[in-house]
Write a protein that binds this DNA or RNA. Structure first.
Lengths: 203, 203
DNA sequence: TCTTTTGTACCGACTGGTCAGTGCAAAAGA
DNA sequence: TCTTTTGCACTGACCAGTCGGTACAAAAGA
């Protein structure tokens, strides 16, 4: 009778596992077809779950998707924050580490990368986008500001635009690599990007 | 009776104008809602055209969209090719000019930029993506190869990955600027990107 | 201990609405 | 005349969301 329709809570329970399965199925299908073209029936089937279960757990197709975005963004933010915490010689070295971490994250969760790229600018998911800006792009922006502070970039450098630029660059390349060059090591791609943004010319 | 359903041909005719209107309407709506969520009725209404006219001209919703992608990619390729033709001191200066041209193009055709970003990796539009790679990314790749040739980049530098990286970077930033900072001059954004990719530190 | 109740999670047939595409006769260019 | 566009009714497939019901475990009687 009382349909829960609440946000994610516990980690190991039965519901939590069902939700994980639904997230994965939804990410896979939406990456291929887009949100609107992906049916709830298809998501349920891929997750090995009845259609009703989707609505029992999330209340609506939109809510499922919003949950998926939040979930992915949180994990990405964690991955970047951890990379930023590591030891580094300079802000630019931290920037390097961030790009590698983002590349690895999207390499592992490729479908999510595509979903993010495709839906990022839709007005419907403003909340998620805001979270992306405050929890992911902010990490890039901070390290760029540090670089300005350290004299590695000109004072007055637009760290906000640059943060978006780097994030978008890595996102695009990560997707392209998975789609077109799956055999190329992530480290090679990272080396190219690192060289692009700060000309670390290694022989 | 005999529905034409052919590709774009002439430029100034009556049909051509109808198609232009449909392209613009479709780009606007699909940028906001995505392909699947945008109805043919809505496109026709926004274009100020009867629904039947859409099918008379394009045969199907998918064909209309494919035409839109082709049309936009062709114009983008032209814009970049022209920018690459201009006088330039060095390959890196040409790269600069390309980024500015891309930025300006997407600034003018913002909805198309979003459509491209969102649908670029969908398997359904493989043809268009291929055309993007051979006619747009190739321009970037060529100038990067020239830079390697000129000793401005290390021999063995992965120009293919770098081309995608720069293209994706500019695309992302162009969309972000239109959505979040419409007042910021395109030239400022370009300066930031230029500084990012080749550290032209101007005071 | 055995029975009954309660709450949670899930199931899947069904419904009401939506939408791509059709058919056609008439009007408007050119 | 021949092409293009209009207006509009129609269809058939598809799909989000609903709802009555099942399964099961844990708690509450008795």
């Amino acid at each position: 009778m009382s349909r829960p329709v609440d946000g994610p809570k516990e980690q190991g329970g039965r519901r939590a596992e069902t939700r994980q399965r639904l997230y994965r199925a939804a990410a896979d299908l939406i990456a291929e077809q887009g949100f609107a073209a992906t049916t709830v029936d298809a998501i349920a089937e891929r997750a090995g779950v009845a259609k009703g279960t989707v609505f029992y757990n999330f209340g609506s197709k939109e809510a499922l998707f919003a949950g998926l975005l939040d979930h992915g963004i949180e994990r990405l933010a964690d991955a970047l924050a951890e990379a930023a915490r590591g030891p580094a010689a300079s802000p630019i070295a931290v920037l390097d580490a961030l790009m590698l971490a983002q590349l690895r994250f999207f390499d592992e969760y490729g479908p999510f990368a595509r979903v993010l790229l495709a839906e990022m600018w839709r007005a419907a998911w403003q909340d998620a986008v805001l979270r992306l800006r405050t929890s992911v792009l902010a990490v890039y922006e901070r390290v760029l500001a540090d670089a300005v502070e350290a004299g590695e970039l000109r004072p007055g450098f637009d760290t906000g635009t640059a943060a978006t630029a780097v994030f978008g660059m890595v996102l695009t390349v990560a997707i392209e690599r998975r789609a077109l060059r799956p055999d190329q090591p992530v480290e090679d791609v990272h080396a190219t990007l690192a060289e692009l943004v700060h000309r670390r010319i290694s022989p």
